[in-house]
């Protein structure tokens, strides 16, 4: 198998996890920046709609590195999709596939199920909750918690900060409750 073919395969966790972890020292070394992504949402608010709210009144331009970083993530998504894309469909566990079939979700051609995340779906109750309400909770929750998976679970725990461990445990508890107890009701809408 050629190198490019190997790269096109899905990458295993023991390759991708350490690469993500390396982002922590790289950002520190190239500019004293603490890894964190949800802050970008705050900077966008501060730059576009500060509305005289004190939480958004700060020098966001000094933090514009973060906006360059997330724009890079977007570009990385394009590059990976158009040049390094896996020719095979995504593999999912048989249990998940079976569960989703009971909600009529059978199209697994993309990284996200198209029957849930598409413009057509947006105008259904189920799609609206998944896309709009879910997104709102991500933005509100991460800022309330003071960080997301990158800022708390990876950066905070890397720096041995116990509040970040508390936040991470709460992320996981929230996720377990939603995925196992509430999401089945949303998916059956």
């Amino acid at each position: 198998m050629s190198i490019i073919e190997i790269i096109k395969e899905p990458w295993p966790w023991y390759v991708s996890g350490p690469l993500i972890g390396l982002t922590v020292p790289i950002l520190l070394l190239i500019g004293n920046k603490s890894f964190g992504i949800s802050s970008s949402l705050r900077h966008i608010c501060a730059a576009c709609i500060p509305a005289n709210i004190s939480f958004f009144k700060y020098d966001w331009k000094k933090e514009s590195w973060n906006l360059f970083f997330v724009f890079g993530i977007f570009l990385g998504g394009i590059i990976a999709t158009y040049f390094l894309s896996n020719p095979n469909a995504i593999e999912i566990t048989p249990q998940l596939s079976e569960q989703l079939a009971t909600y009529g979700i059978t199209d697994h051609s993309g990284l996200l199920p198209a029957q849930l995340f598409s413009w057509e779906s947006l105008f259904t109750l189920r799609g609206f909750i998944m896309i709009v309400v879910g997104g709102f909770m991500v933005g509100f929750g991460t800022r309330y918690a003071g960080g997301c998976t990158s800022g708390h679970a990876i950066m905070g725990i890397s720096n041995l900060q116990w509040p970040s461990l508390v936040a991470t445990i709460c992320f996981m508890i929230g996720g377990f409750i939603m995925a196992n107890l509430i999401l089945p009701y949303i998916l059956s809408l």
Partner: peptide, 22 residues
Amino acid sequence: GGLLFGFGWAITGACPGPLFAQ
């Protein structure tokens, strides 16, 4: 906030970083 983000994470399947990549 952590619990609320956990809810949103499980619904959307994304934290803020993956949103940009998606």
